[in-house]
Every structure is written in C-alpha cells, then in structure tokens.
C-alpha cells in the first residue's frame, strides 16, 4: 500500500510542470513552424494541381478530343433538330448551340479547371 502511495505521489510530482520564463516564446516558435510548413504545403499542392491541370489539358488536345467532341456535338444537334422538326417544323432554337468551336473550348476549359480542382483535393487528402 505504501509502495502504491509512493508511486502515485511520484506520478503527481512528475505531472507538475516546471515554469519556464520563455513559455510563450516556445509556443510562438512552434506556431511559426506550423505556419511555414502549412504555407509550403499549400504551394506544393497548388503547384501540383496546376501541373496536373496542364498535363490533363495537353492530353485532351493531343488526343484530338476537341474534334471528336465537335463531331459528336454536331451529330447530336442534327439528330435532335431533325426530331424536333418532325414534331414542330420551323423550330430553330438549337441553332444557337451550333456556335460549335466556342462551346467546345469553353467545355474543355471547364473540364481542365475541374480536373485541377479534383487533383488538388486528392493530393490534399493524401
């Protein structure tokens, strides 16, 4: 029993923290190191996201993706327009969408941004 009491007393003595005059400076140093590490990580993640976006964009362009999407877009537009014309002749709303190139480029741009965002989030999670 006395042994146990002594050990408990010893644990309590160990739990008493000595006071350090530079305790606040010590905490500030650690916060500073954490902030530096965080900034560096943000830059690395951002850089990796941008690099991933650029690689993704170049791959899309190299694989002739734009032309395929354009063809598919034109094909489907014609198909839809034919179908609608059968139902209601003279309906020409979808011709607005046929400003082909612009639509495809905007869609590609949005895809690249989305890819960069997803890559950034994935790297951040890892």
């Amino acid at each position: 029993m006395a042994e146990l009491d002594f050990e408990r007393g010893l644990e309590r003595l160990f739990a008493e923290a000595p006071s350090f005059p530079d305790a606040e400076a010590f905490a500030s140093r650690i916060e500073g190191r954490l902030a530096r590490g965080w900034n560096m990580r943000s830059w690395l993640i951002g850089t990796a996201g941008v690099a991933g976006g650029i690689v993704g964009a170049s791959q899309l362009i190299m694989s002739n993706f734009v032309h395929r999407v354009e063809d598919a877009s034109q094909g489907s537009t014609k198909l839809i327009q034919t179908s609608i014309a059968q139902v209601k002749p003279g309906f020409d709303l979808l011709s607005i969408v046929q400003s082909d190139w612009m639509v495809v480029w905007v869609a590609s741009g949005l895809a690249v941004i989305a890819m960069g965002f997803v890559l950034t989030k994935v790297i951040e999670e890892i």
């Binding site: 006071s19 350090f20 305790a23 606040e24 905490a27 650690i30 916060e31």
Partner: peptide
Amino acid sequence: RSSFGELVRRHGS
C-alpha cells in the same frame, strides 16, 4: 493551427 497553439501553451512546459 491556433487551437493547437493553445495546446502548446498549456502543455509545452
């Protein structure tokens, strides 16, 4: 990080 800073203030010594 500021929450962790508070933990350091409490237990650093």
